[in-house]
Simulated scan of single mutants.
Amino acid sequence: MTVLKGAKVRLRRVSSEDAEARFALGTDAEIVNMFGVSLSDAKPMTRDAAEQWAEGQANNPYAWAIEVEGCLVGEIKLHSINVHDRRASMAIGIDLPLNFHPAATRASVVLNTPSGAV
């Protein structure tokens, strides 16, 4: 299993053990809105939904968990993969308010910095 590590951020495969951490992150209305989902469609995170999330991510060979200082904060994945053209789109989802964890604000910067030197 490939794990990418930085000073504070680690990308790794999602496992079923991540369901509890995803449940604990809950559903933040501001984040749901930033993901393009209507606030009226936002639903509280349930244990069942968290387990389905973990299973779905674990079964996706192009999805990884984002950890900041050992805590799950979101996921990163490739989608719309075009093997012929050797290209794909990438989605990054940070599932907690940026002020929730001091290092969380650096997670998206690290993931978007070519050298990862943040």
Rank of each mutant, 00 (worst) to 15 (best):
residue 29 A to T: 13
residue 32 V to H: 11
residue 77 K to G: 03
residue 110 V to A: 13
residue 29 A to Q: 14
residue 12 R to T: 02
residue 69 E to N: 07
residue 111 L to Y: 10
residue 105 T to L: 11
residue 18 D to H: 05
residue 60 N to C: 03
residue 13 R to C: 04
residue 81 I to V: 10
residue 81 I to N: 02
residue 41 D to K: 08
residue 92 I to Q: 06
residue 94 I to C: 01
residue 36 G to I: 02
residue 33 N to R: 15
residue 11 L to G: 04
residue 67 E to G: 01
residue 64 W to F: 12
residue 81 I to F: 04
residue 77 K to M: 08
residue 68 V to P: 03
residue 77 K to V: 04
residue 95 D to W: 07
residue 38 S to D: 10
residue 79 H to L: 06
residue 13 R to E: 07
residue 116 G to V: 12
residue 104 A to Y: 01
residue 40 S to V: 10
residue 80 S to G: 10
residue 70 G to P: 00
residue 24 A to K: 11
residue 6 G to P: 07
residue 79 H to W: 09
residue 29 A to E: 15
residue 14 V to H: 13
residue 44 P to A: 15
residue 51 E to A: 08
residue 32 V to T: 13
residue 4 L to F: 14
residue 31 I to E: 09
residue 56 G to D: 02
residue 13 R to W: 01
residue 54 A to D: 01
residue 41 D to V: 01
residue 29 A to R: 14
residue 90 M to R: 11
residue 60 N to A: 03
residue 86 R to S: 14
residue 3 V to E: 13
residue 2 T to V: 09
residue 58 A to R: 03
residue 66 I to A: 00
residue 86 R to D: 08
residue 39 L to A: 13
residue 107 A to S: 12
residue 51 E to M: 07
residue 66 I to T: 02
residue 71 C to N: 10
residue 14 V to Q: 05
residue 21 A to N: 02
residue 74 G to I: 06
residue 57 Q to T: 04
residue 17 E to S: 10
residue 77 K to F: 08
residue 79 H to V: 02
residue 99 N to Y: 08
residue 23 F to W: 09
residue 4 L to Y: 13
residue 7 A to S: 12
residue 62 Y to E: 07
residue 42 A to L: 06
residue 24 A to C: 08
residue 23 F to Q: 04
residue 20 E to C: 00
residue 11 L to W: 08
residue 66 I to N: 00
residue 59 N to T: 01
residue 77 K to P: 00
residue 117 A to R: 15
residue 37 V to R: 10
residue 104 A to T: 12
residue 8 K to D: 11
residue 90 M to D: 05
residue 4 L to W: 13
residue 86 R to Q: 13
residue 73 V to A: 09
residue 22 R to H: 10
residue 91 A to F: 05
residue 105 T to R: 15
residue 7 A to R: 14
residue 17 E to A: 11
residue 39 L to F: 03
residue 85 D to G: 05
residue 45 M to A: 15
residue 106 R to C: 10
residue 21 A to D: 02
residue 109 V to H: 14
residue 70 G to W: 01
residue 75 E to H: 08
residue 55 E to A: 12
residue 47 R to C: 03
residue 116 G to D: 14
residue 1 M to N: 06
residue 84 H to G: 07
residue 116 G to N: 13
residue 75 E to D: 13
residue 19 A to S: 06
residue 3 V to R: 09
residue 93 G to L: 12
residue 112 N to Y: 07
residue 29 A to H: 12
residue 23 F to D: 00
residue 43 K to L: 12
residue 20 E to I: 00
residue 82 N to A: 08
residue 118 V to T: 14
residue 53 W to T: 03
residue 117 A to W: 14
residue 11 L to Q: 05
residue 102 P to L: 03
residue 101 H to F: 05
residue 9 V to R: 04
residue 93 G to K: 11
residue 22 R to V: 10
residue 98 L to W: 04
residue 4 L to D: 07
residue 3 V to H: 06
residue 78 L to Y: 07
residue 108 S to A: 11
residue 101 H to Y: 09
residue 92 I to P: 06
residue 62 Y to V: 03
residue 95 D to C: 12
residue 47 R to P: 04
residue 47 R to E: 08
residue 97 P to N: 14
residue 26 G to I: 06
residue 19 A to Q: 01
residue 77 K to N: 09
residue 103 A to V: 06
residue 9 V to N: 04
residue 76 I to G: 07
residue 25 L to P: 03
residue 71 C to H: 09
residue 59 N to C: 03
residue 82 N to M: 06
residue 15 S to I: 02
residue 57 Q to R: 11
residue 33 N to H: 15
residue 27 T to R: 08
residue 107 A to W: 00
residue 116 G to P: 12
residue 4 L to I: 14
